[in-house]
């Protein structure tokens, strides 16, 4: 059987809220090392990869590898019934056709159970090569969210360019253009506001803002987001979930016609 208890159930709620508009349904894969998911959006332009480590759960048991297909909208409906301070336990029997979500309030006075029917979902796993990136930028997740939201009111695409000292986000549209630059700032007294840049090669790539705005729905998961860029490769937009794992998004670049 599979059984996993997450004291901070809100994490699971936030993960599902972050991906439910991007992917319709997905297989959640559970094995000894943890709970994971990989899925493409319906236009096959971006890829979501979630990884929650077994040791990030207070209790984790997985007797055999299982793949549980769920419609994200339905999973979201159920998780919305969990309180923000509830602990969430997921349970499924081997070869079972449902997964049970148990929500426990902090004082343990309220206990609720919801069963979600599992579905058969055809999914293809893509091999994500281990790559050294030309540039890695770590910036406050709220800052990234604001930038992609602001730029989307001007244009459809953003050019992200990284140099040693700064990362620039630029767009053009019918009404005009916009540029936002964030300088490297390894702020010691306010680590949550730091922007850190690590580059081997300056890089500039263009991406669809629609997808970046969708990825930014993961902002509540982490104080920072990590952007990884290499020439002619998909950008990685990564949210680290402290002590538990990470949620990564990959987006193919736009190329000149």
């Amino acid at each position: 059987m599979f059984e996993a208890r997450l004291q901070q159930g809100a994490l699971l709620k936030k993960v599902v809220e972050a991906i439910k508009d991007l992917i319709e349904d997905a297989n959640f894969d559970c094995n000894n090392s943890g709970f994971s998911l990989q899925a493409m959006d319906s236009s096959h332009v971006s890829l979501v990869a979630l990884s929650l480590r077994a040791d990030g759960f207070e209790h984790y048991r997985c007797d055999r590898n299982v793949s549980m297909g769920m419609k994200l909208a339905n999973l979201s409906k159920i998780l919305k019934c969990a309180g923000n301070d509830d602990a969430i336990t997921m349970k499924s029997e081997d070869n079972g056709d449902t997964i049970t979500f148990m929500f426990e309030s902090q004082n343990q006075e309220r206990l609720s159970e919801f069963d979600l029917k599992l579905m058969d979902i055809d999914s293809e796993h893509l091999g994500i090569p281990e790559a050294e990136y030309d540039a890695t930028v770590k910036l406050p997740s709220s800052e990234f969210q604001r930038i992609v939201k602001d730029l989307a009111s001007i244009g459809d695409t953003v050019e992200i360019s990284v140099t040693k000292d700064a990362v620039k986000f630029g767009t053009n549209g019918d009404i005009g253009s916009a540029n936002v630059m964030c300088r490297q700032n390894k702020s010691v007294d306010k680590p949550e506001e730091s922007t850190e840049i690590d580059i081997t090669e300056p890089v500039a790539l263009t991406f669809a803002l629609r997808y970046l705005n969708s990825f930014a729905k993961a902002t509540p998961l982490s104080s920072h987001v990590v952007l990884k860029l290499s020439k002619d490769l998909p950008i990685v937009v990564e949210y680290h979930i402290e002590n538990v794992g990470r949620l990564s998004f990959f987006l193919a670049p736009k190329v000149e016609e």
Binding site: L126, I128, L233, F250, A252
Partner: peptide
């Protein structure tokens, strides 16, 4: 969308 590459042109099927 014009100029938009698919993700599978970068990451192959496992």
């Amino acid at each position: 969308a014009p100029g938009q590459k698919g993700i599978m042109s970068f990451f192959g099927k496992k």
